[in-house]
Design a protein around this nucleic acid. Structure first.
Lengths: 214, 214
DNA sequence: GTCTATAACGTGATAGAC
DNA sequence: GTCTATCACGTTATAGAC
C-alpha cells in the first residue's frame, strides 16, 4: 500500500536526479577506497551535494554501500553470461569473448576486482548465494562444452573450478596486481594498458594450451 | 650516540617481549582487515596488552603499520629469490619451486596477497623501489634462463612481465579470490585447500604449455 | 528537497599515577 | 614498563529552518 510514486525522470541522461548523482559518486569512491576508508563526506563532495542529503536518500552509509556492492557484483559476474550461453560458438571462441570482455571492462574500471575481492572477504555475506550465479554458471553451455571436451578426450580431465581460476587468474589478476606489476616493471599506465590489450589475444592461446597440457 | 641498549631477551620464543607481542598482533589484524578497518584497540586486545602501550612502543598506528607492511612485502617477494637464483636447476624446476613455495606460504597465511595489493594501491609509495626487488628480479638466473630459452627457440617470444603475471595469476589469484570461488563452488576451507595442493603439480604443467603455446 | 548546525559516537593518542 | 582515565578530533547521522 505504498503511496509514494517513483518520480518520472524527463531527462535522466542530461540531468541525473540527486539520487543518481549520489549513487554515481558513491560507486566511484567506494570502488577506489573500499567501505572503511571512504567517508560519507567524500561521497557528498564528489556528488556535489550536501552531506545530509545522502542520509535523506539512503538512510546510512551501509545501506548505500550494499546497493553499490550488489550492482557491482552483478555487473562483474553477469557480464560473463552472454558469452557463456551462446550455443553456436566453440569453447575457444567463448574464452576469447570472456577474456576480451573482461579486459575491456577492467581497463575502463580497473578498481572493480580488488573492490569485490576485498569487500567479499571483509563481509562474508550470502550475496553470491542470493544472486544464484553459481547455478547459472555451472549449468551454462560453456561448462557443458568443457565437460563434453573432456569426455571426447580433447581436453585433459580437470576440475572446472581449476579452469575458471585459470581463466580469471590470467585475465583479472593483472588488474588486481597492477600497482605491484607497474612498480616491478617501471611501467606507465599507458604501457600497462598496452600489455593488457596484448593479453586479449594471448590468453586464448594460453588457455587452449592449458586444456591440452599434461 | 644513542645511550639506549637493546634489551637482551633471554627466552624470546617462550616469552616474547611486549614489543613482539604487539607486532605479532598487529600483523594478524592488519593482514585480516587492512589499515583503515583495523582499530588500534583491536590490536591491543589481540596482543593482550593495554592500548597505551601500543603508542608507547610505536608512537602511532601508521608507524606500526609501516613496519608490518615492509616486513610483509619483503617476506612475500624475497621468498621468491632463493628459487630464482639457483643456477643448477632448470627453468621448469624453478617454476615448480616457486609455485610450491607460494602455495605453502599462502595456505598458511592466506590474507597476505589481498593485503599487499590493497595497501599498495591505497598508498602508492616507493617501497618497491626502495627494496630494489625489481633489479634483483630482472637480473636473476630465472629471467636469464627464460630469455635464453627464447633465443634458442624453445620458448615462444613473450614479454617477461606476461610470464610473471601468468605464474602469479595462476598461483596467487586463487588465494585472492577465495571468498568468491568458495561461494561459486560451494566449497569448505578443507576442500579449497585440497584444490590448492593439486595446483602445486598442475601449475608447472600449465606453465610449460604456456611457454610453447602459439 | 536541500541546506546549516549540531548531536552522538568511535577512534587515535596522551597525561599521569603506579 | 604498564596501567586507567581522559582528551581531541573526525565521522556518521539527525534536527530543524527554509
Amino acid at each position: 500500500m505504498k503511496k509514494e510514486m517513483k518520480q518520472v525522470k524527463t531527462k535522466p541522461a542530461v540531468d541525473p536526479s540527486t539520487e543518481e548523482k549520489i549513487k554515481n559518486a558513491a560507486r566511484i569512491i567506494f570502488h577506489k577506497k573500499g567501505f572503511s576508508a571512504t567517508r560519507t563526506r567524500d561521497i557528498a563532495e564528489e556528488a556535489g551535494i550536501n552531506l545530509a542529503l545522502l542520509n535523506y536518500y539512503f538512510r546510512s552509509k551501509e545501506k548505500l554501500f550494499d546497493i553499490i556492492m550488489l550492482e557491482t557484483l552483478q555487473g562483474f559476474l553477469l557480464s560473463l553470461l552472454p558469452a557463456l550461453n551462446i550455443e553456436s560458438t566453440s569453447l575457444e571462441k567463448k574464452i576469447e569473448a570472456i577474456a576480451g570482455n573482461y579486459i575491456d571492462l577492467l581497463t575502463a574500471e580497473p578498481d572493480i576486482p580488488l573492490f569485490i575481492m576485498s569487500e567479499l572477504k571483509a563481509n562474508p555475506n550470502e550475496l553470491l548465494g542470493k544472486m544464484g550465479i553459481k547455478e547459472v554458471l555451472m549449468r551454462s553451455h560453456f561448462i557443458k562444452q568443457f565437460q563434453q571436451g573432456i569426455k571426447e578426450g580433447k581436453i585433459v580431465p580437470m576440475n572446472p573450478l581449476h579452469f575458471m581460476m585459470n581463466l580469471m587468474g590470467l585475465t583479472v589478476f593483472p588488474f588486481i596486481a597492477s600497482p605491484m606489476m607497474k612498480g616491478l616493471g617501471n611501467l606507465t599506465d599507458k604501457e600497462y594498458n598496452e600489455l593488457m590489450q596484448q593479453r586479449k589475444l594471448l590468453i586464448p592461446t594460453w588457455m587452449k594450451a592449458i586444456l591440452k597440457a599434461k
